[in-house]
Design a protein around this nucleic acid. Sequence first.
DNA 1: AAACATGGTTAGCATTTACTTACCAATACC
DNA 2: GGTATTGGTAAGTAAATGCTAACCATGTTT
Lengths: 109, 109
Amino acid sequence: MPATLDRVARALGDSTRLEILGALRGDEQTVGAIAEGFAMTRPAISQHLRVLLDAELVAVRAEGTRNYYRSTPDGLAGLRAWLETFWDDALDRLAGEAAKEEADKGAPT
Amino acid sequence: MPATLDRVARALGDSTRLEILGALRGDEQTVGAIAEGFAMTRPAISQHLRVLLDAELVAVRAEGTRNYYRSTPDGLAGLRAWLETFWDDALDRLAGEAAKEEADKGAPT
DNA sequence: AAACATGGTTAGCATTTACTTACCAATACC
DNA sequence: GGTATTGGTAAGTAAATGCTAACCATGTTT
């Protein structure tokens, strides 16, 4: 079952978490390596990773005591789909309004 | 200046606000008309609309005492762009890993 | 002008969020 | 076995969030 749309959006709604995803853009990273890039404690990063996990935006792979996190694009699929249809609908609506205005101009009562 | 990515995502990270955007999918709506669809007071809706306004996901048009809200797809452009590149990068990475695994299988040391 | 309609703003509240410090569990290393 | 390393968890806290009730401002209608 995919995470809800608002859960995914909420997970993305924090600059720290966006930066974490940015850090995972290349290869997978250990928690420690991720945390090094931030001016906050490791537990804080751990908690952010939990939120991203719950939103299914990342996944973990344990190797010994190290936990390697990687981003999982699938988690973005739902939001992506919503955004596309919403976008398309909005453009259709704008096109419709433009056409209507054109018609009004052509035949003003 | 466009709203920041996390501001937009945060605005989307609430089911009520997602529903409001859904209600604005068709035509523009007055605040009262929007509020009718929800089991909460009008001020609450007003506050949600403020968040959406700040994220530039909606715009208002005043007509007398009525305020007509409409969704503004432009506000989603930034998030959309981020999502696309992030998505593409992730797919490239997956393809790269698959290729690497294939190579490892072909010539295991 | 008086009464109504519409909707933004304020103050107050309970809950959630983003942290910190302290602690615990599990594996690696000697 | 003892001791680092690595990272998740718990308790506590300050700030932000999502509401409500009360109020105010503006425009409309008669």
